[in-house]
Structures are given as structure tokens and as C-alpha cells.
Write a protein that binds this DNA or RNA. Sequence first.
DNA 1: GGTTACTACTTTCCTTTGGGAAGCAACCAG
DNA 2: CTGGTTGCTTCCCAAAGGAAAGTAGTAACC
Lengths: 127, 127
Amino acid sequence: MAMECATGRHSDHDVYAAQCPCRAMLDMLANKWSALAIGALEQGPRRFGELQRRLQGISPKVLTQTLRRLEDSGILTRTVYPAVPLHVEYALTPLGHGAAVPLGLLRTWVEENLDNTAASPCRPRNA
Amino acid sequence: MAMECATGRHSDHDVYAAQCPCRAMLDMLANKWSALAIGALEQGPRRFGELQRRLQGISPKVLTQTLRRLEDSGILTRTVYPAVPLHVEYALTPLGHGAAVPLGLLRTWVEENLDNTAASPCRPRNA
DNA sequence: GGTTACTACTTTCCTTTGGGAAGCAACCAG
DNA sequence: CTGGTTGCTTCCCAAAGGAAAGTAGTAACC
């Protein structure tokens, strides 16, 4: 009786089911670089170099991999303008803009709630 | 002038800064198993075996790693009841319950929006 | 003509992390 | 003394992450 998926809670999908394709989607979105890249594209299309500067600490290899995966999943589009020098733009699809909402809330929550942990803040609050 | 972090957008933290401790927090929460484990604990404390059955496909090693990391970050607590057989309960902290909100939205979004992608559904919609 | 610069990667190499299979330890029931 | 239950740990391998350097095409500078 369709134990593999479909508990009927939301739609036909269940992220808790190992075989459900939405598990793979969750695995892709629930990832540091994906969350940051999607957030960086929320305000409009960005170029490779812009993203690399924004996502501090990412290497070009990993940025390419991340963008390719998101492109293959329909989260963003890659457009090449054969100008000189080469110009490549990445932009969120409507699906990507949808995913950006919960991911943005997650990023915001992390930034606003880290103080409650034992981690040291970037700016000490009394110095 | 504090380029390492703190763009001032939300609080003193910036997930886009590589050195900001909130980047590490994002890296931990933005992860398949963390998102599922936190969701599974949202309705109340759960035992190791319960979590392992709920998070279909997780191995005991990976579940232990995930729970330990979340415990070390203050997201959940681990309580041992020295009964026979051994009884261990995992429960979200207030911080964990806060993190559960955006993560729950992400899980729900994935379940409800996978249809819009090229991925095959669990239950075909016309058969 | 040679050199430098720009953009967007790719390649190589190495370290770190993730993941499955199996084993372990404690305890009790039969 | 064997089997069952719970909650892990250990071993080993494969996949992913990350730093550094190389590539390709063009154009502007000297």
C-alpha cells in the first residue's frame, strides 16, 4: 500500500521516505552553498564572479558544481552572452524564487539566533 | 573595519561571511539529516530507534553523528534513563524549536513543489 | 609582435566527510 | 546459555569539499 512514499500529509510526497524523489530535492536545497547561492540570486541575476565574491570562501570549482546542480533541478537558469569578455548570467526560475523563501527564513533565523548559543559573536555586544 | 562579518543586515552576524560563526551553524542546519531529525523531534522527545525508523534510510552511525552535532550546538538534548533495556531520549531545546520553524517550511515547500519539476512523482497523478 | 588583463571555468591533487555493513556491550527472559 | 532488545561504535571505502594552478578566447596596451 505505497509504503515507499506518500503519507498523504501534504501532497503526494514525503521527505521522510528514502525513495521519494523529493528527498533528493531536499538534499540539494538543504546545503550551505545552495542556500547562500539561491539567496544571492533573490534580488536578480548575477554573474559568476559576483557570486564568487558574495559567497565568501567558495572555490570556483564548488561554485560551478553548485550552480550546475541547481540548474539541472530547475532552480535556476544559466544564460551565456557571447560578448567580450565572456558574460554568463545566473537567474532564479519561478521554482527557485519559491525555494528562496524558506531558505531566506533559515538564513535569517541563523543570523538572528546565533547569540543564544555558546558561539562567539562577530562583534562582541559590549566592546 | 570588521570586514570579516557583520554587514548589519539582521544582527551582528552574516552567513555570507566565511569566518562568521553563524556560517558553521548554517552548515549544520542546512543538511538533509539535520532537517529531518529536527522535524521528527518537533512533536516531542523521541528515542534513538524511533528516529532511525522515522528517518528512513539513515544508518545508526550517521544518526549518532547528526544527533551529537545538534547536541553540541545546543539544538537538542540527550537524556539517558538507565533502565533496562537502555532508554535514551532526544528532545529539542527552545533554540531547536526555533530552528524547526524555517526547516519545517523548507520540508513542506519541497513536498508541495516537487510536482513542478521534471522529477517523477511517487504516485502518478493520472493512474 | 609580445605582454598583460579579463571572465569563466577546468584540472589536479589532497583532505575531509558521508555512508553501509557489521560488531559490541549491557541486560534480561526463557 | 541462547536469543532478544536498545543504543550505539568500529572498519572500510566512496563521494564530496577545497586550495592551487592551468586553460581558452579576445582585446587592449606598449
